[in-house]
Design a protein around this nucleic acid. Structure first.
Ligand SMILES: NC(=O)c1ccc[n+]([C@@H]2O[C@H](COP(=O)([O-])OP(=O)(O)OC[C@H]3O[C@@H](n4cnc5c(N)ncnc54)[C@H](O)[C@@H]3O)[C@@H](O)[C@H]2O)c1
Ligand SMILES: NC(=O)c1ccc[n+]([C@@H]2O[C@H](COP(=O)([O-])OP(=O)(O)OC[C@H]3O[C@@H](n4cnc5c(N)ncnc54)[C@H](O)[C@@H]3O)[C@@H](O)[C@H]2O)c1
Lengths: 206, 206
DNA sequence: AACAGCTTGTGAAAACATTCACAAAATAAA
DNA sequence: TTTATTTTGTGAATGTTTTCACAAGCTGTT
């Protein structure tokens, strides 16, 4: 299969979101142009993005909202549910844990780990925060698909090495550090400092 | 001035971080190749990125760590301090508020707003959570440079319209929605669902 | 059945970003 | 001083992504 760019995948996520809104609004067809306007892109871009995966539209008409919704969910792997573990039960960890949108889209947090004895044992929803030492075995036993890393930067690489060794192949990292992972592991970083610095640059350059 | 790409700016942020580490480690020169390896890029890329802004290195030697540190801070606008307001004193808002890295890099949260009467009036550090109704005037009075939007998606566009009208020209958005802003306003989105969906796509495509 | 009005799907062109490759400059050693 | 070694800065080459532009296909109308 042809290599799909990261920007295409990001845009598919956005299209999916608009389709959901359109669907909630009772709309049943949508054109590439409408999709584009909502996403701040062009209709040609929308069509090109979709064309990597097939032809889902009807000329003269546009796309069937429920049909395209289903197709993009399929493409992105969202028709199944994913088992997620959260490492680091701190401030950002707890915000993420209670974030309903994740559940809603099929990302289910099934385990939470921390090293802090004052946090281990705490009840979080229907889970218990477990000791970090149990992580390696638990990831395998529970068949965890993805790990969210929300530990301090100094601890992050160590955690990730163990996570990778345990066979997990997708990681979402919140620590402000460039993690090293084998190329077989998918890694995304959420780096808020980089975003703020980008804004700073924009402010002084106009 | 030539247009600088967003990827270049992102990488500058990363270089800055490595330079800080190098500086803390007592290193006083660094080569484009060392910088590249830490950032998962190539030495040519590092040199090209820097070349948009000047020549900071010495052939045969590399870059002076403190000098390049200062230069990149200057380029990114980090030699001054920025006044930031936080809108939405919820779970993610409170995590962000207590995030020390922001302060450390010159982003100072100077005001927090919320609509919820049970939150308004609460003491957050040396600030008081203020009523959302006071926001428009306060942004101007305090000379706020940037706003962090951490309100529910439904409320985000409304908040942003007011923020823009109040003259703020940089926004960091956490709500899972595509905000519309005039092109004179810099906008960055932190969209965790998009990242998770990217991981999902990666998992089913190898 | 033919025509008018739209919108898709897609090669080709244009714009943009990364990598290559090497002359130029700096240092240190002979 | 000359030579060997290192690493920058940068045009040119290559690779990637976006935009353009239009034939092909679908619907509804006459
Ligand atoms: N708070 C924010 O808004 C924010 C924003 C952006 C990035 N981050 C980053 O996210 C990470 C967490 O930030 P936070 O504010 O939640 O910090 P925090 O101190 O509140 O939480 C970190 C948690 O990780 C736990 N921990 C430490 N080592 C561990 C290990 N080896 N295994 C498991 N758990 C371990 C700690 O006990 C603590 O509970 C940091 O890297 C931070 O830079 C935070
Ligand atoms: N919690 C997370 O981990 C997380 C992760 C990613 C994105 N987000 C997004 O961040 C936003 C906030 O999420 P949260 O979990 O903190 O929700 P939350 O409900 O805890 O907080 C939202 C806060 O915004 C306030 N608010 C509502 N309308 C407002 C207005 N017009 N002006 C000012 N304040 C207003 C509410 O009173 C509440 O205190 C949401 O858009 C959410 O989708 C949250």
């Amino acid at each position: 299969m042809k290599k799909i760019s990261e920007s295409t995948v990001r845009r598919l996520s956005l299209y999916l979101r608009f389709l959901q809104e359109a669907s909630d609004g009772g709309l049943d067809t949508i054109s590439s142009d409408e999709l584009a306007q909502r996403g701040g892109t062009t209709s040609a871009q929308v069509r090109k993005d979709l064309s990597f995966f097939g032809s889902f539209g009807k000329r003269g008409l546009g796309y069937s909202v429920p049909e395209l919704l289903r197709q993009i969910q399929e493409i992105l792997g969202l028709s199944r549910s994913w088992k997620v573990a959260l490492v680091g039960a701190g401030k950002i960890g707890s915000a993420l844990f209670s974030y309903r949108d994740f559940q809603l889209r099929g990302f289910h947090i099934r385990a939470v780990f921390d090293t802090d004895p004052t946090k281990v044992g705490a009840a979080w929803g229907d889970l218990t925060v477990r000791d970090d030492g149990e992580m390696d075995a638990a990831l395998r036993e529970q068949g965890i698909d993805m790990v969210i890393v929300a530990v301090p930067a100094e601890a992050a690489q160590g955690v990730v090495d163990r996570v990778v060794k345990a066979g997990v192949r997708a990681i979402l990292n919140f620590a402000p550090i460039r993690l090293r992972v084998p190329s077989s592991v998918a890694l995304r970083n959420v780096d808020m400092t980089v975003e703020l610095e980008g804004l700073s640059f924009a402010l002084i350059n106009r």
